[in-house]
């Protein structure tokens, strides 16, 4: 019967494979589904940080007081370095789009040039992140941890809460650029006893300053904190440091694996694998991953450094 034959033909057209219900190849579609799940993972981390930030609102550090350094520049430059990192990542995203674009036109040399530049951008970002971690881990001005684990800063009476660095208190001169001298709690306690105009203040939004008497009392059980680790954090609540290491570390791992994937595909491009295949869709697939890394950074930038 004519009807049966038509049905059979339709069935084989539907189930014979080779169709793209989404108009995207298997590999590209699966990359998108992976990115969807990865986006949910990252949002899990960022919202978990939001939970603790809302819980410990008083002691949560303000990022612009934490990340204030810029290479070769003296003084405090909040946001400038992360802005540079953002710029590097956006630029490497642009070179990736240009590589994909060249691939669509089967322009072999174009793909080589733009993918190569993307890899360079990836390494620049990783280097910047290492620099940022180095400064966060080594710390800046140093802080005092009280008996109840609260972090407080040294400040001179009448300086409107301006943080006095541990270096300046102990040595009497301003902390030089890039100095990472480690002091002992004893150094700070004796220097604090000598400088009677120095008191303590709380970090965060409230910035309450203690009287000298309160500060002297608090100093009896004080502990000096320099820098940040998973257990202590001179900038405030230790969870801030934990989330910083975890979220930017997880993102950095993504950047690193992105660079590795880019290099693998780059080598394939150089060997002419895709020229032979007739299309450069593999470049597009790693491109999706690379843009995703940029996308995540846009959110990390906002929720770690801006808000």
């Amino acid at each position: 019967m004519a009807n049966g034959a038509a049905l059979e033909q339709n069935t084989s057209a539907l189930w014979g494979g080779g169709r793209q219900p989404f108009g995207a190849s298997y590999g590209k579609m699966m990359m998108w589904f992976f990115l969807l799940s990865d986006a949910l993972t990252f949002s899990g981390f960022l919202t978990a940080m939001g939970l603790y930030r809302f819980k410990y609102e008083e002691t949560w550090p303000i990022a612009e007081n934490v990340f204030t350094h810029f290479p070769m520049l003296h003084g405090e430059h909040p946001l400038l370095f992360v802005a540079l990192m953002t710029f590097i990542l956006i630029l490497s995203s642009v070179t990736m789009v240009l590589a994909v674009n060249a691939g669509h036109k089967n322009n072999h040399n174009g793909v080589v040039l733009w993918m190569g530049l993307t890899i360079v951008g990836g390494f620049m970002f990783l280097g910047s992140q290492a620099w940022e971690w180095y400064h966060f881990i080594n710390g800046d001005k140093g802080a005092i941890q009280l008996e109840n684990n609260a972090i407080v800063y040294l400040t001179k009476a009448g300086s409107e809460g301006k943080i006095l660095s541990v270096y300046e208190l102990v040595t009497g001169v301003e902390k030089p650029h890039g100095d990472h001298t480690e002091f002992s709690t004893g150094d700070v306690v004796s220097a604090f006893g000598l400088n009677t105009d120095v008191t303590l203040r709380y970090p965060g939004k409230a910035e309450t300053t203690m009287t000298r008497e309160e500060a002297v009392k608090a100093f009896q059980t004080a502990k000096l904190i320099q820098g940040a680790s998973l257990r202590e954090n001179e900038y405030g609540n230790v969870l801030f440091a934990d989330f910083f290491f975890f979220v930017t570390g997880f993102h950095g791992t993504h950047v690193f694996s992105g660079v590795v994937l880019n290099i693998i595909i780059f080598i394939n491009v150089l060997m002419g694998t895709y020229k032979q295949r007739g299309h450069y869709e593999m470049v597009e697939k790693v491109g999706l991953y690379w843009h995703f890394v940029d996308l995540v950074w846009v959110f990390v930038f906002t929720f770690f450094y801006l808000v």
Partner: peptide, 15 residues
């Protein structure tokens, strides 16, 4: 980033 760089804005609607 998603609509242009990742080209999602130019994919099929169901995708």
């Amino acid at each position: 980033i998603v609509a242009e760089f990742m080209h999602l804005g130019h994919e099929r609607k169901n995708f």
